[in-house]
């Protein structure tokens, strides 16, 4: 991706490609949910934000996609600032094409009134400039990419299983062709056998267009298999960050160690067994 001169940062320094988050902050009353979080995500890279409930991981990504307004800090994608409210339709759409999101609960994240193909067609109408025939072809292509067929295309969400719905949600995000895909506990609500299918699908998608992944998860075992980098959050602050293998195998911070020691797995019997 080439960067034109006008897309340089206001400071005038060289543009850092990818997603750069600096000093992100959010308060609710006297509770600081996100307290100076900084990180960056290179194009095509995969970062996992991990932590327990209330650590601020979901609030952080909600600020990235514009569902919450930050109280401080900046969010830039390829140097373009997206911390302030978008001005006008063009900027709103441009931002949507930068970051898309897949939500946790596939039972609540699809419009109950809209069929699968209708849902994808709507996104394409907004973003692609394709005609009806072109959109139809693209919808079929997207569905094929996430492993769904014609039967699912005409179905309403209530006619689909949890795994199928999550595939639709992924296709819906991909329809925009975003640079970064935020996955907010996107496999947490699924059965293990289905979860592995979705993880495999996400792996396959990532190999092709070089899309950046931002995983929000509480599951460190999942992190091992999907992330290049890990960021550990506690009480809204970053306690540790680094390459996934390094953080999982040689954690530096006591809290990271505690998290890792708490992951149940065979061969680590707990007291009483």
């Amino acid at each position: 991706m080439t960067v034109s001169a006008k897309e340089r940062t206001a400071v005038g320094g060289p543009v850092v490609p990818g997603l750069v988050v600096e000093g992100l902050r959010k308060r609710y009353g006297d509770h600081t949910a996100v307290d100076g979080v900084s990180f960056s995500l290179a194009p095509g890279a995969s970062l996992a934000i991990v932590g327990e409930s209330g650590c601020g991981k979901t609030t952080t990504v909600r600020m990235l996609v514009g569902l919450e307004r930050p109280d401080g800090g900046t969010v830039r994608l390829d140097g373009r600032d997206r911390s302030a409210l978008p001005r006008g339709r063009a900027e709103r759409l441009a931002r949507a094409r930068e970051i898309q999101m897949v939500f946790q609960d596939p039972y609540l994240s699809l419009d109950p009134r809209v069929t699968v193909s209708g849902c994808l067609d709507g996104v394409l109408r907004l973003h692609s400039g394709l005609g009806p025939a072109g959109r139809r072809a693209r919808v079929a292509e997207l569905l094929d990419q996430v492993g769904l067929g014609a039967r699912e295309a005409s179905a309403l969400p209530r006619g689909l299983s949890g795994g199928q719905r999550q595939r639709v949600a992924i296709a819906r995000a991909l329809a925009v062709e975003p640079r970064v895909l935020v996955l907010d506990e996107a496999v947490a609500a699924l059965d293990v056998s289905i979860q592995a299918q979705i993880l495999e699908l996400l792996g396959a998608i990532r190999r092709e267009p070089g899309i950046g992944y931002l995983f929000v998860t509480h599951d460190l075992a999942v992190v091992r298999h999907i992330a290049d980098e890990v960021l550990v959050l506690k009480s809204g602050q970053v306690v540790e960050t680094g390459p996934a293998a390094r953080v999982l195998d040689a954690p530096q911070h006591p809290y990271t160690r505690l998290l890792l020691d708490s992951v149940p797995h065979r061969g680590r019997p707990l007291p009483g067994r």
Binding site: L67, Q100, M101, P112, L126, R172
Partner: peptide, 26 residues
């Protein structure tokens, strides 16, 4: 506050469109 409405917002639809075309029918 439901994710499907939030998904429409993340897609870049205007507040007017989301509230009238997607929220209202539901």
């Amino acid at each position: 506050a439901r994710p499907y409405i939030e998904a429409y917002r993340v897609q870049g639809w205007s507040g007017w469109t989301v509230s009238v075309r997607h929220l209202l029918p539901n």
